[in-house]
Nucleic acid binder design. Structure first.
Lengths: 219, 219
DNA sequence: ATTACTAAGCAGCGAGTAA
DNA sequence: TTTACTCGCTGCTTAGTAA
């Protein structure tokens, strides 16, 4: 949705156009927006075509009301702002399911990790990880997440080798309880490794390439 | 502020650019926005010029962080959405102080009104009304307000004439406790008549033409 | 009064490119 | 690789105007 249409919709909502029909001529709207009557009219026309508003024409002015579709678009925008200011206790990632290299199963199978996961996350991890590839640009969010600390799992020895430090964050994967596991070093991975008490692939009926939403929680 | 700049700023914030510096090249931003590298670069440049973001250039990419000014702009936008969805228990008007025609004093001085005000609003109104002229377009908000009912004050007889029905809403005038009084009929006034236990002009140091914020509360 | 069409003018977009 | 300049061209804006 074009930013200027969203802005128009928002300003209509501020005048009460979600619960009520509001009286507004394109000329008035033009003054409010500091543009021409023609542009204001065109914006309203575009919103109408996109089913964001309904209009009734009288002899004077028009009665405008925001539709469910329009209100949804606004609410969506609102959620983004909530994300920024309020709910900084969560970070939302969108990505695609990819196949791991079988490593996740080996690691999560390690007694050391399994015990830590149970003690610190409160669940027994199903063997293996669900790997979600995020947009490259969203690696900034991983950095954001790291800055909050998270649940640290220390180095330990097993099978004659050292397993490195990892940091976990409680998370939901398409709504299902779980956690994401980040290596302590290497700040810019673009794959989120998720663990969960459930077999996520089966429970959620996921296949490679499916879109997955991972919500990580801070504290 | 141009809507597309606000959108850019919002998306930077979603990547964590308020607390952190984020790594982002104009090319990446272009892909995210589905536009050209040049346009993305220009947007970032504009935000920089408007002091909404700061940038540090390395050999690769740039480190971007949102400034206080930028965060304020976003917070302001956030408040608008809050207004729409959450705090529909208040309606915010902005207007200018105008001189009444001395009528307010006569009316508020009437025993009938004075008693009602005290009983239903919980304060003794200072004689007279503070008149705030709102933008013509905001009369839609008055309609919105009316749709919530408000505190009704019935007709009464005094001095051999009938005083009409009015509807009140508890309100704050530049933060000071008070109420607005709307005639029951005549749906589209553009002047809000405010009453208060205080002499608002004096207490707030207001003069004609000053900008006044009136927040009306629904129940 | 309105809304909104057509057409002209101009701002913003992006290809090419320099640094 | 980057960022961001110039410049031709497209598409948005607005004046004029019809309905």
């Amino acid at each position: 949705m074009k930013p200027y249409l969203l802005q128009t919709l928002k300003e209509l909502a501020l005048l009460g156009a979600i619960p009520n029909k509001i009286e507004l001529s394109s000329h008035e709207r033009a003054q409010q927006l500091e543009t021409s009557q023609q542009t204001a009219s065109r914006y309203l026309l575009e919103l109408d075509l996109q089913q964001m508003i309904t209009r009734e024409f009288g002899v004077k002015k028009q009665l405008i009301q925001i539709t469910i579709t329009g209100a949804d678009a606004l609410e969506n925008e609102y959620m983004s702002y909530k994300q920024i200011f309020d709910l900084t206790n969560k970070v939302v990632f969108k990505g695609k399911l990819v196949s791991g290299m079988g490593e996740g199963k080996y690691y999560t199978g390690q007694k050391g990790y399994a015990e830590h996961f149970e003690k610190q996350l409160g669940f027994v991890a199903y063997p293996g990880t669900l790997n979600v590839e995020i947009e490259y640009i969203e690696r900034n969010k991983i950095r954001l997440l790291r800055s909050y600390g998270g649940i640290q799992i220390d180095e330990f020895q097993a099978e004659n080798r050292t397993f490195g430090n990892v940091v976990c964050f409680k998370a939901t994967i398409n709504g299902k309880e779980g956690a994401i596991v980040l290596p302590k070093r290497s700040h810019y991975a673009t794959v989120l490794e998720c663990i969960s008490p459930y077999n996520l692939r089966e429970t959620l009926g996921l296949h490679d390439g499916d879109t997955v939403e991972v919500v990580a929680y801070i504290q």
